[in-house]
Design a binder for these strands. Structure first.
Length: 340
DNA sequence: TACGTAACGGTTGAC
DNA sequence: GTGTCAACCGTTACG
């Protein structure tokens, strides 16, 4: 049986998995280096990540304060919640001649929904047709008639708590919610397609998994379809294994951001929280990805304060030295002088 | 040369 | 169990 090979090599020689986010450690490193004043082009070259990706990650970070990737997969949360259906039913009962658009306005006016999760007129029409259309007919499962209503047509979990305004920007981008709120990431990393595994840097991403105390490791390590042998065993994206190991310990100069930015704050199980399950009752604000139950992430999140960044910037005469050290810590390669 | 971004092909997970 | 859909991903190429 031929095992598929998921890894690919980009133009810079870096290994990536199409469709999958970069390891968080690399994402963090990108932001970290940028914070040190290293140019994106240099970060791109040194980490062997496309400049487009570097640009995207940095832009995302500046916008949301999170280095974590967004929620992949899943479906948008339902807007036709039982509560909404109930309200529509009541509106329709009070005024059978009510138009769908009137109902929609009413839902907004009564704060049953907000502008972000109000059903469309067509959705309301569908509700009226499918669920409330025979409202006036006898035997209807209206409450109060002593007849137990059938099971709700829509299996629903308490998604009503879902609040778009706090979670999604007008552009649809997930933004940070209240710190520490709803950041419990319940879903374990669902995919065997973790880049860390694919790249063979499991230990880099999740040192604790080496011990494998929770059985999670086994699941990951048993992934049979990753042809790790196709990747260099000694280096990942230009990061020498020995340096990766060092990176795990993160013995970096305390003068840099590293002092309060753990190098690998996001273990794979932590990262998983941003994938899937983010809609509906599983949905979690992206911006809080750094502030979830992993205290390291919270710490990492804190480092993003622009004022902090400004305050923590080292004296200018140390910047170049720090940049050099930062990149040197990532690679065994000498930092080109052009990187200045 | 550096950078932003659209296009592209891919993955993911809810439905 | 499978297909669809809509979200996301990183790379590439272009300006």
């Amino acid at each position: 049986m031929e095992q598929p090979s998921y890894g690919e090599v980009n133009q810079l020689g870096g290994v990536f998995v199409n469709g999958r986010p970069l390891p968080n450690a690399i994402r963090v490193r990108i932001v970290e280096l940028a914070q040190l004043g290293i140019r994106p082009c240099d970060i791109s070259r040194q980490l062997r990540v496309s400049h487009g990706c570097v640009s995207k990650i940095l832009a995302r970070y500046h916008e949301t304060g999170s280095v974590l990737p967004g929620a992949i997969g899943g479906s948008k949360p339902r807007v036709t919640t039982p509560n909404v259906v109930k309200s529509i039913r009541e509106y329709k009962r009070a005024d059978p001649g009510m138009f769908a658009w009137e109902i929609r306005d009413r839902l907004l006016a009564d704060a049953v929904c907000d502008k972000y999760n109000v059903p469309s007129v067509s959705s309301i029409s569908r509700i009226l047709r499918n669920k409330i259309g025979n409202l006036s007919q006898p035997g209807q499962h209206e409450t109060g008639c002593g007849v137990k209503p059938p099971a709700p047509p829509i299996p629903y979990s308490p998604m009503c708590a879902y609040s778009y305004p706090n979670a999604i920007s007008p552009t649809g981008a997930k933004l940070g919610g209240p710190p520490g709120v709803g950041v419990g990431l319940s879903r374990a990393w669902p995919s065997v397609h973790t880049v860390s595994n694919i790249l063979g840097i499991r230990a880099f991403m999740d040192p604790s998994a080496i011990a494998g105390p929770d059985g999670y490791q086994q699941k990951m390590e048993e992934w049979p379809c990753v042809n790790r042998t196709s990747f260099p065993s000694h280096a990942v994206n230009g990061i020498d294994r020995s340096h990766i190991d060092n990176d795990i310990k993160y013995n970096q100069s305390p003068s840099s951001l590293s002092g309060y930015m753990p190098p690998c704050p996001y273990s794979s199980p932590s990262q998983c929280g941003v994938y899937g399950g983010n809609y509906g009752h599983h949905w979690q604000p992206q911006g809080t990805g750094l502030a979830h139950n992993d205290s390291h992430l919270h710490t990492a999140m804190n480092f993003k304060s622009p004022s902090d960044v400004a305050d923590r910037k080292p004296p200018s005469h140390l910047i170049k030295q720090q940049q050099h050290e930062a990149l040197s810590s990532v690679h065994s390669l000498a930092l080109p002088t052009s990187a200045s």
